[in-house]
Each structure stands twice: as structure tokens, then as C-alpha cells.
Amino acid sequence: MREGLRLYFRMIGMQVRSEMQYRASFVAELVGNLLVTGLDFVMVAVLLMRFQAIGGWTLAEVVFLYGSSAVSFSLAELFVGTFDNFEQWVVRGDFDRVLLRPLPVIFQMLTGAFPLRRFGRLAQGTIALGVAFVLLKPVWNVGHWLFWGVMLAGGALFFMAIFVLGATLSFWSPQMHEVANIFTYGGQFMTSYPMHIYEAWLRSIFTFVIPLAFVNYYPALFLLGKPDPFGLPGWVSFLAPLIAVAAFRGAIAIWRVGVRHYQSTGS
């Protein structure tokens, strides 16, 4: 375990050093990432300043929801970034190299990239949360803070599961990878706004098929002291860690099936 952890940091270190080879580019991309992902925040701000409220939620409340979702998502992006452009690995046959090394495949995937420049999203998500706290001035006890931490971690884990599932698609059809964007980037975009504004079919998909709502919207309802407009019992707000862990384990299991279907390029 300790040896594994040491190797993990050693391999992440390689990735970070690789990235630092292009220092100027790195800085520009970091700033670029901050701005690009910041556009989502700007959108929330512009719209809610203009319209005051959405589905009964105020600017501050939406910014809180948005910031939580963005932070979870950016953590997922940092840790499982390799899965995000995995179709490239399949197309170029780079996955061969992973299979040739005597380390668990998942371990190598987790250390295959550490896109530091994506700290931009984490940074702007954190800023959004700062703004939300200033506006909301929440009166929370330790339990609330802990609950919020679990909500962020659960969200991150859930997004990781989606990244892994999206990557798994590439084993069958690298071109279909873009469908994964619906659930990764689309999921993040969608969970930035309260779930009840969406039409029933969209809401059902993200509540029951890909239960993102449980790691984001329901915990937020609890923290913001809002009742569930769909009348689900209050305890569903506490399902986040369970659902996140289950989703992640499920995703890994499906990924394993995919690995056996890997058809390296060429003949």
C-alpha cells in the first residue's frame, strides 16, 4: 500500500514534470482554462442578475449549487483526466503500453496524466463558492460542513465514474466518445442549475438512470433548507456517498469488460 502510494506520486511527478517542460504554454493554458470554465460562472451571474431568480432559487443559491458542482467536476477531471481523452489512446494504440506494464490497468490510468492546467476550473469553482458563502452567510454547524464535504467528494467520485464509463465506450467505437460529453460536461452544466427546472424526461434521466441528482441537487436542498418539490423523503439527501461509491464500482466493473474487448490498432 505504502509502496503503491509512493509509486503513484512518482508517476504523477513524471506527468507534472512533463507538463512543466512547456512552462509558458502551461501558464497560458491555465489562465485559458480558468476563463473558459469561468464562462459557465459568468453565464450564471449574467442570467440571474438579469432575471433575479430561477425556479424559486436566488442568485446566491444557484451560485452555491454551481460552485459545488464545478469543484466536484474539476477534482474528477484532475484525477481521471486520462479517461477523458481516452479515445485518442485507443486510436493511436497507446493503450498497448499500459497493458505491457506489470501494474494494474486502473492504477496506470490514474497516473497516465495529471492535467495541472485544469486547476483553472477548480480555481473558478472555489471562487464561485466564496461568492456564494458571502451572499448566503450560512449558519452551519460542524455536521453541515462535514455533510458538504461528503457532497463534494461524492460528486467528484460520481463524475469520475462517468468519465470512466465514457472512456469505456471507446473500446467499442472511439467515435462515439462524444456521446460521453453529454454525461460528463453536459452533466456538470446541468447540475449547475436546480434540477426541478428541467423537463420531466431530462430530470428522470439524471435522477434514475444516471443519478447525478443525488450527489448534487438533493444534498444542496438539505443544506439550503429547501423542501423537495417532487416530494421524495428527506433522507434521500443523505444517499450521496452510497450512490457515488456504487456508481464508481459499477463503472470500474464495466471498464474491465471493455479492456477485454480492446482491439489494438493495426493487424
Binding site: 508517476m11 514534470r17 512533463s18 517542460q21 505491457l100 506489470p102
Partner: peptide, 24 residues
Amino acid sequence: FGQRTGLWWDLPVIESLDLLRHIY
């Protein structure tokens, strides 16, 4: 595998060898 390298593209050769030492 001929055309593809198993080394870390942007880093000095010795760093790759050193990491492989730890992996194996």
C-alpha cells in the same frame, strides 16, 4: 514495438529508466 516508444516523451531518457526501475 518498433515505431512507438515506451518512454516518457517529454522527459530525459534517464528519468524514464529510473521510473521503470521502480515499476519493475
